Simulated scan of single mutants.
Amino acid sequence: MNARREDARRKIQLGGLVIKSGMADYPASVILGALTLAAGALKGPNADATKARFEAAGDAAFSDDGEDGGNRS
């Protein structure tokens, strides 16, 4: 798979995650703000605990409907 196709696939997967999270109806600035705050928290003093909390929430969201839609990595 070439780099351009891989990039397109990754962007589609990330868009699917926004939809799966329930944030698709929010303005782009709200989604970007939430992701920016999350990225900052993952670099903060409690990064390991924050990552574990986010991962547990993500795993629960993926298992809610029994499928990952190809977006889980």
Rank of each mutant, 00 (worst) to 15 (best):
R9G: 00
E6Q: 11
L17R: 06
R5L: 14
D64K: 13
A60K: 03
T50Y: 01
A34E: 13
A56L: 13
A39L: 06
R53N: 07
N71Y: 03
M23A: 15
I31A: 00
Q13G: 07
D48I: 07
E67C: 01
G33F: 02
M23V: 10
G22R: 07
D65N: 12
L42W: 01
D59G: 00
L14R: 13
R4L: 10
A41G: 08
A57I: 09
M23C: 14
A34Y: 01
A60S: 09
A52P: 08
E55A: 09
T50L: 00
A60L: 12
L37Q: 10
A28G: 04
L42Y: 02
R4H: 06
N2M: 05
A28R: 14
I12R: 13
A8F: 08
G70H: 06
M1N: 08
S21T: 05
D59H: 03
I19P: 07
D64F: 08
F62S: 00
A60P: 00
G33S: 02
D48H: 12
L32S: 11
Y26N: 15
A24C: 02
N2W: 03
I19T: 15
A47F: 09
K20H: 03
N46F: 12
R4A: 10
G15A: 12
G69F: 11
K11T: 07
A24L: 11
N2D: 14
E55G: 01
A52G: 03
D65E: 14
A41Q: 12
A34M: 11
K20L: 15
G40D: 05
R53E: 12
K51L: 09
Q13D: 10
G22W: 02
G40Y: 05
Y26D: 14
L17F: 01
D64L: 11
N46T: 13
A57T: 04
D59L: 05
S63A: 15
G66W: 00
A41I: 04
S73F: 07
N46L: 14
G58K: 03
G40T: 05
A47V: 01
D7Y: 01
G44N: 04
A8M: 05
G44T: 04
R4C: 05
S29H: 14
M1C: 10
G44A: 15
V18I: 15
S29P: 00
Y26K: 15
I19K: 15
G15F: 02
R4Q: 09
A28N: 13
A61P: 00
D65K: 08
L32E: 15
Q13Y: 06
D59T: 06
T36L: 12
R10D: 04
V18Y: 01
S29G: 07
S21Q: 12
K11S: 13
Q13W: 06
K11L: 14
L35D: 09
D7R: 04
I19N: 11
A47G: 01
F62G: 00
K11R: 15
A3G: 00
M23N: 15
N71D: 12
S21D: 04
A52V: 13
D59N: 12
L32H: 15
G33D: 13
